[in-house]
Design a protein around this nucleic acid. Structure first.
Lengths: 252, 252
DNA sequence: TAATGTGAAGCTTTTCACAGCC
DNA sequence: GGCTGTGAAAAGCTTCACATTA
């Protein structure tokens, strides 16, 4: 079985914040930061939930895993909650991050402003292609991927981002792990396998679009969204494994 | 209450594929496509599950929502399953997509190869900045965002991608919706609100990194991952809403 | 015999609704 | 009076384990 992502067992019985909650904390943090910038001092669970796009019950339950940071009858102190959520997420320091792959995606990531403002710092932008090495990207110089170990050692990098083509992703992941990186954000459209103890998260543009397409198709049922077929090969059921005739009433 | 994303009620009782399953279908499709390219004709749930990074039980359960496309004692016909999953996702046609925002992210998205090969086609790359209009990106010419309505009408675009700065995102979303787009993939780090019936999915780089940071921090507990503090403001509990002294044994 | 398809059990997440506190 | 914090119920998702079938 391929080892991939291992969210530290959510239900470590009692202790531990549910994974679903962890995934929403960054959203709350962004909403809170925005409120703080607008000068809002206090916010109710209702108002914050609206700003974050969740229900107030969910928000309160989520925050309750961190502790009791609100005041009944009043709400939450924005600055204080920003601090608590940041601390919980481990953002009391700027994490150095190494990006491997200086193609257009790597460039875009390196130039992404939300990086610096939200707890991260690009320690290096690396590429295996000599023609890209030396390129200047937003004050950063593309270095050869051979420098990976040096970068990780010098800056105690724990998080790596893979922005290479799919074909190179596994090898890059191996290098990252070997160099000591223990968390990886993978933009390559391929499953990478890593040893126990290394976390991997995946972002796949096509997957997101395909999920949208699924729902879009259901809305449009009948009204063709485009003109004609283009993508998929043939409907041919191959040799003979097709039991059901027409796949309609799919039901359980 | 802000209307945001509305996954067509997963549990429409009996009918309908669970949202969690829908989100994995694209992953299965990618694994299947890869197997097909390698010339594999038949695959067991075990092998496919490994290739997709899930358990075989989950895979079988997921596929069972689509119908009975396997053969007991044998497995699944790869080509046939590719077709069935594609059809379920609505990928029997190439969906035209409009990208708004021709900054480095917009460029990267427009040049993303996985786009064309996985069911989508960039109908247009738009930007509000006149200095970007006319730029050539991979055979595509950046057009002014005023052309949005024309593009949507001419190519029956249903899906839009927002790759603008956060400040412009809501306005762009409004324009997309007004033009007739009913599915939006939002890369801007801000919550956009849209009317009922429009689906929104979000991709936020910083959120993904922050989730990784959370787990990374837990692993490293004790071993400082970097040198010192940089990001967050002050620990000051503000005026007086702090009930708990030290936030440690958070437990329920 | 080998591997799918699926009820049923177990777990996680969400929602409800209200006691408790400011 | 208003709003948080949280048990309890409901819904959703995953895993188990095995009857079923080619």
């Amino acid at each position: 079985m391929t080892a991939v992502s291992r969210p530290p067992r959510p239900s470590a019985k009692g202790r531990g914040i549910p994974e679903a909650t962890v995934a929403r904390l960054p959203v709350y943090l962004r909403a809170l930061t925005s409120l703080a910038e607008q000068g809002t001092a206090t916010v109710s669970s209702d108002a914050l939930a609206t700003a974050a796009g969740v229900t107030s019950a969910k928000l309160r339950k989520d925050l309750s895993y961190l502790g009791s940071y609100g005041t009944r009858g009043v709400g939450y102190d924005v600055d204080y909650l920003v601090y608590q959520v940041s601390r919980e997420l481990g953002l009391t320091q700027a994490w150095p991050v190494v990006i491997v792959g200086a193609g257009s995606l790597g460039h875009a990531l390196a130039r992404y402003g939300g990086f610096a403002s939200r707890g991260f710092r690009v320690a290096a932008l690396l590429d295996a292609d000599e023609t890209r090495v030396g390129q200047q990207v937003d004050g950063l110089v593309v270095r050869h991927v051979d420098a990976l170990q040096d970068v990780v050692d010098a800056e105690a990098v724990a998080i790596g981002v893979i922005a290479t083509p799919a074909a190179a992703a596994q090898q890059v992941a191996d290098h990252l792990v070997a160099a000591g990186v223990t968390s990886i954000l993978n933009f390559a459209p391929v499953l990478i396998s890593v040893p126990e103890g290394v976390d991997v998260r995946k972002v796949d543009l096509a997957v997101e679009l395909q999920i949208l397409a699924f729902h879009e198709q259901r809305k449009a049922r009948g009204g063709a969204p485009t003109h004609l077929s283009v993508a998929v090969p043939e409907p041919e059921p191959a040799s003979g494994p097709v039991p059901a005739p027409e796949p309609e009433a799919v039901g359980r």
